[in-house]
Write a protein that binds this DNA or RNA. Structure first.
Length: 432
RNA sequence: UCCUCGAUAGCUCAGCUGGUAGAGCGCCCGACUGUUAAUCGGAUGGUCACAGGUUCGAAUCCUGUUCGAGGAGCCA
């Protein structure tokens, strides 16, 4: 009986006979030799079956295997220079667990529509597997940062009453008592309550937006990490964001070399992000840069995708854009004491055309000012609890939200965020 | 919601000013001892998205519909 092994750690078993449990990803054969490309979830390895070395039935079986047939393969691990992973398996036995007929996804090219319709199978492909592995490490790296820096994870509710920021873009459902309920589009307001209880907190969970957005940067269900910190003000908020991003990227560079290679990510720009200080510019300076570069961009508007790309190309690093005009940002953002018309908040724009990945700000902590904002926006009683946070021991506090999928898309260098999650939920696509 | 583009074999696509359907790949059969999107030979494979219209004749032209993709707005 052979030892069970995993491809990821196959190097431990050189010159030993092992058992691999997996699937046939691809096959090439000639009259006297067959190459089986085997995957087991942990990686890919090539198995070799030479006609003269094995019983006739085994060679015939190997030649007849179809793509994605599940197999238990025994064989001897061999160091092999020609292999991308450095090892090959000299196959001595194959047990077919379940034969596959007519697997739809071939190693050849396919269109987006076809692949998305077969997303449940597409994730078996080397590239998709690598992206999902990197996603897991991005999450791990972020949690690691928060846990090492005194944050406590808190989980805000997903079912919420009407939103303080309006409900037009929210998924509506009926609550048990017949009231309208909405799927959360941000846990931030609740996280502010948590910060007053635990100091430094972060949430990590799915968030839902019923926006009819149809771009490579949008999904209707995505994951967000939302830290909130008591006694932290604007400048420190940005420092923490920068440290988080650097730590996360370093974690991926250290832990996913194989996966980054599999998706052919050029890691030089990422190493630069780890080693260099992120520039901070004000919104006004950003507008000036755009105008100098020939954009007809008026002060007071939000940036579009080409503007964000222009700004980050200018620095070739993630860039904080701070002190935005208050009227284009959320009601809860703290005004700059030096200029009431702008707020103490910043967006972090990722380089290489990836755009906004973080939005953060210092929050209004003054009770009277928050009451004014409530009046201006006509908020109802369902968010009185949020106002109460300013009545009972209010302190300066800040927080931010980082979009998990946008961050992963950037780190992986892929052009559409739908590949960063197992089953993407985009406009017009609720299947599979 | 708006703008742009698209839908032909299992997949990726070609099909000209209208004349009755093509290639490559996959599957299947055969050849080949180092392939790695293997290669070579053969065979199979179609309600040309749907519904109307124009015409002797429509994959092709016109109208509408459905579905999808890219982008705008909004955001992470």
């Amino acid at each position: 009986m052979s030892t069970k092994a995993k491809i990821a750690t196959i190097g431990q078993y050189v010159d030993q006979e092992v058992l691999l449990e997996g699937w046939l990803w691809n096959k090439r054969s000639s009259g006297k030799i067959a190459f089986l490309n085997i995957r087991d979830g942990s990686g890919f390895i090539q198995g070799v079956v030479a006609k003269e070395d094995v019983p006739e039935e085994l060679f015939a079986l190997a030649k007849g295997l179809s793509q994605e047939t599940s197999i238990r393969v025994t064989g001897k691990v061999r160091a092999e220079e020609r292999s991308p992973i450095g090892y090959e398996l000299t196959v001595t036995g194959i047990e077919v667990v379940s034969r596959t007929e007519d697997y739809p996804i071939t190693p050849k090219e396919h269109g987006v529509d076809f692949l998305l319709d077969h997303r449940h199978l597409w994730i078996r492909s080397p590239r998709q597997r690598a992206i999902l592995k990197i996603r897991a490490e991005v999450i791990k790296g972020m949690r690691d940062f928060f846990d090492k820096n005194g944050f406590t994870q808190v989980d805000p509710p997903i079912l919420t009453p009407s939103s303080a920021e309006g409900t037009t873009n929210m998924f509506q459902t009926e609550y048990v008592n017949g009231e309208n309920a909405y799927l959360s589009q941000s846990g931030q307001l609740y996280m502010e309550a948590a910060a007053m209880a635990l100091g430094k907190v972060y949430s990590f969970g799915p968030t839902f937006r019923a926006e009819k957005s149809k771009t490579r940067k949008h999904m209707n269900e995505f994951w967000m990490i939302e830290p909130e910190m008591a006694y932290v003000e604007h400048a420190e908020n940005m420092q923490i964001q920068e440290a988080l991003v650097k730590h996360t990227i370093k974690h991926v560079l250290d832990n996913c070399p194989q996966e980054l290679k599999a998706i052919q990510r050029d890691t030089a720009p990422l190493e630069r992000v780890v080693n260099e200080k992120f520039p901070i510019i004000t919104y006004a300076e950003a507008v000036k840069i755009l105008q100098e570069k020939g954009h007809d961009f008026p002060y007071g508007e939000d940036f579009g995708a080409p503007h964000e790309t222009e700004l980050t190309n200018h620095f070739d690093l993630p860039v904080f854009v701070e002190k935005w005009p208050a009227n284009i940002k959320a009601f809860y953002m703290q005004p700059d004491p030096e200029d009431n018309s702008v707020i103490l908040g910043a967006d972090l724009l990722a380089p290489e055309g990836y755009g906004e990945i973080v939005g953060g700000s210092q929050r209004i902590h003054d009770y009277e000012l928050m009451k004014e904002r409530y009046a201006e926006h006509g908020f109802d009683e369902s968010y009185n609890w949020y106002l109460e946070l300013r009545q009972y021991g209010s302190v300066p506090h800040s927080g931010f939200g980082i979009g998990l999928e946008r961050t992963i898309a950037w780190i992986c260098g892929i052009d559409h965020i739908r590949e960063t999650i197992m089953i993407p939920r985009t406009l017009y696509r609720l299947y599979p």
